[in-house]
Every structure is written in C-alpha cells, then in structure tokens.
C-alpha cells in the first residue's frame, strides 16, 4: 500500500508529508511502547542472561 493509494487525489506534497508524518508517529509510538517494555522486562532478561 503506497502513499498514493492511501490518499488518492491528494497533491504529491501532501501525500509525502502524510507519509513522513505517519512514519514519524509510528517511530515515536514504537519507541515509547518498546521503552515501557524495556523498563519492565530488562531486569528479568538481564538476570536470565547472567544465570546462563
């Protein structure tokens, strides 16, 4: 699914900005979600690695 398919009939500049905005939001969300996971799971993972 390309930007042009997602937003048909919209100007190329708006399509490009929408795609960049979408990627930026995805990246920020993933950073935040994985950050929370890291805080919660990292100590347990570190302990497990140290026990191996």
């Amino acid at each position: 699914m390309t930007g042009a398919e997602l937003l048909p009939g919209v100007s190329p500049t708006v399509t490009a900005l929408a795609v960049i905005g979408l990627v930026l939001v995805e990246a920020a969300l993933l950073y935040a979600v994985y950050g929370v996971l890291e805080d919660k799971l990292a100590p347990a993972v570190f302990k497990r690695i140290q026990r191996i």
């Binding site: 699914m1 390309t2 930007g3 042009a4 398919e5 997602l6 190329p12 500049t13 399509t15 490009a16 900005l17 929408a18 795609v19 960049i20 979408l22 990627v23 995805e26 990246a27 993933l30 950073y31 994985y34 950050g35 890291e38």
Partner: peptide
C-alpha cells in the same frame, strides 16, 4: 529522501511499518 520519493507516491507503507516494528526493537 522520504519526502522526495513520497511525492512520487512510491513508498510502500506496509513494508515500512513491518520493518519498523522489528527495527524499533533491534535499534534499542
């Protein structure tokens, strides 16, 4: 680069999203 190619409407959002799901964890 994303802006330039985004204007041409050739960025595949499915590919980018899937790659980002993995790379976000890998990059951390």
């Amino acid at each position: 680069g994303a802006f330039t190619y985004g204007r041409a409407g050739v960025i595949d959002i499915g590919i980018v999203t899937a790659l980002l799901l993995g790379s976000a964890l890998g990059a951390r």
